[in-house]
Write a protein that binds this DNA or RNA. Sequence first.
DNA 1: TTGAAAGCGCTACCAA
DNA 2: TTGGTAGCGCTTTCAA
Lengths: 351, 351
Amino acid sequence: MTSDAKDTRRKGTAGTHRRPTTYDVAKQAGVAQSTVSYVLNDVRTVTIPQETRDRVLEAARTLGYRPNAAAASLRMGRTNTIGLISDEIATTPFAGKIIKGAQDYAWEQGKILMIINTDGDADIAAAAITLLLERRVDGIIYAAMHHQEVLLPTTLRETPAILLDCFVADRSLPSVTPDESGGGYTATQTLSAHGHRRIGFINLQPDLPAAVGRLAGYHAALREAGIALDPALVRHGNSRADSGYALTRELMQLTAPPTAIFCGNDNIAMGAYDALRELGLAIPNDVAVIGFDNQEIIAAYLRPALTTLELPHYAMGQWAVRYLLDHTEHSADEAVPQVVLPCPLVMRDSL
Amino acid sequence: MTSDAKDTRRKGTAGTHRRPTTYDVAKQAGVAQSTVSYVLNDVRTVTIPQETRDRVLEAARTLGYRPNAAAASLRMGRTNTIGLISDEIATTPFAGKIIKGAQDYAWEQGKILMIINTDGDADIAAAAITLLLERRVDGIIYAAMHHQEVLLPTTLRETPAILLDCFVADRSLPSVTPDESGGGYTATQTLSAHGHRRIGFINLQPDLPAAVGRLAGYHAALREAGIALDPALVRHGNSRADSGYALTRELMQLTAPPTAIFCGNDNIAMGAYDALRELGLAIPNDVAVIGFDNQEIIAAYLRPALTTLELPHYAMGQWAVRYLLDHTEHSADEAVPQVVLPCPLVMRDSL
DNA sequence: TTGAAAGCGCTACCAA
DNA sequence: TTGGTAGCGCTTTCAA
C-alpha cells in the first residue's frame, strides 16, 4: 500500500501493468509494427523470412506479449463471441448439456460463449439482448429449457440469431427443437415391436408442443402397426410423478388395461413405477414402461432402469452454434430453417 | 459475391449494416461527438442543457445507435467481463448453481460472464486462460466441481483470479471452498442433539479434502458431546451408492451397531437406505440417516426424504465474483484469502 | 457549454 | 520483403 507517496501501482515502478503492444514487440525485434502483425497472425499474403519471424516471435515471448482482442475486434468488426441467453440454468440438467454442446463446437472454431441466464424474466432477456448487441457478438442463441413458443423483443433481429428448444409464432426466426412426434413415434413403435397391442399413453399437459408432438407420434405408430386407437388409453397429466401415479392406477383399472405404458416424461414414469409396484405388477413382465427426457438421475436409478427417449440438448446446442457460424451475414433472402433433431431411444430394462 | 450484379449487401443499398456511431449521432443531432458521449454516459462533470440532451437522445434513438463495447473497452482498459473456467458443466448440477451465483451477482454489477468448460483437460484449461487473458477480462474464476487441490498454469497470475471449490498447494491464489469440517460438525452435532450416541460415519475416499474436513468435524462434534470415538464406526467408501450399501451392512453387523449414520454424500446415503430397508430397519425410527451435498434429485426423492448438508455452490459463485470486483487491481501486498463458506443443514425426514 | 483532437492496440493497405 | 500509416469507435483532455 505505501511507498514513498503510495503511488506504487500507478507509475512505471514495476507494479505498473501496461501490457506490451505490437509496437513494443516491434521495437524490441527491430521491425515495424505491421511486420509483427503479419508474423503473429501468420499472414500468408506477405512473405517474411524465417529469421525475421523468429526475432519477432522471440521478442513477443520475452515481453510476454498478449494480443488485445478488443483492439482486434474493433478493427475487424468481428468478436468471435457468441451470446447464449437461457431461461434457466441451475434448475435443470438440460442447461448444462445445451451449454456444453454449444461450447464444444464453438471452442473447436475458436469462438467463445457469453452466457446470460434470465430466470425466465422477460425484462432481463431484453436487457441481455441489448448487452450482447453492444458487445457486438457474432450471433445470439436464445435457449429455452422446455419446448415452447416464445415472444421476443424485436431487437433480437439486429444480429444473426437462433432459437433453441423454442420458436416464435410466425416462425420468422430460425429454430432448432426436438423432434417430439418422432420421439412419440419411436416410443410407441418400440413398444408395439415388443408385441404390445394395448399401449397406454400418459401425456403431459395437452397444450404443450411436446405433448402435441408426442401424441401425434403415438397415433402414427399405432396406425402403422394396425392398432385401433382406444381413447381410454390416453391420459393427460401434469408432468409430475404424482400424476403418473394417479393416471397409471386409472389405466390399470380399465377392464382391458394396457400391457405397456408410454409416459410423457420420466417423472411420470417414476409415478407409474410406484403405482405398478403397489398393484403388485412387475416391470417389464406384467407391464412395460417407457419414459421421455432421459433425466439420467431418475432413469438410471429407477429399478428396473428406465428405457426412455433422450432430448437432444447437446445436439441442439451444437447445431445452434454451427448455424450461427455458417450464417454470420444477415441474408434475408434465405429461408428461415425450423430444424428438428431426433430424440434417440435409450434402452434400459423397463421393456 | 461478385459485384455489379449481386452486391446487395456490400454497398449502401439498405442491406448494408454499418452501425451508426457517436459520430453519426452527433451529426444528426447537430452537436460534437464528445457531446454525444457526455450525454449517453451521463457524465456529470460537464453540464449540458436539457435541450441538447434531448436532441442527442432523440438522434440516438431514431438511428438505432448502440454503443460499441469493444471500442469502449479499448479506450477504458476495462471489459466489464469476468471469465469463468469450470472443469465440468453438464455432468453435475453443481455447475449450474455456481454459474447462477456468479452470474446473478455479476449481472447486478453490470458485468457479464464468459464461460469456458474444460472437461477436466489441463491443456484446454491453459488455452482457456490464454484466451481470457487476450480478451482482457477483468478477472478469472477457476472453478472445480469437487473440492480438490489443483495445479494451474502460472499465466493465471497475469490477471486477478480466484479459485472456487479448489486451491493450490502453496495457497498463493485466493480461494473459496465449502467449510467441510463445519459441515461434518453440523451433521454429527445434529445427530447427537437428537440423542444419538453411537453415530456411524461412512466417509468418502480418505484422501479427499472433503473427507478430511468432514472427519475432523465429526471428531470435533463427538468430543464436544463427550462421546468417545469408536474407530469401528468410521468407514471409508468410494462415494457411490454401492459402497454406502456395503458399508452400512458392515456397520449394522457390529455387536453394537450405530443408531445413526452420517453419510459422506447423498449417493452413499442412497445405498444406506437400500441396506437398511433390506435389513428391515426403519428410517429414522430404527436408524437415523444424514447425508451431504444436497443432490436435490436424490435427497428430495428418497423416502423418507433425506436430511443433508448443502454445498454452498451458489454462494461460492457469488463470493468469487464479488471478490474479483473488489480486487480489480493486482495488489501483491494484500493477504491471499482462503475463504470457507458454511454448508447449511437441509432438514427433511431422515432423522 | 461545446468542439477538436489525441490515442487505446490492432489490421491491412499502399509505397518503397 | 518491409515500413509508414490510416482508421475501427470510443472517452476525455484541453481550448475556445
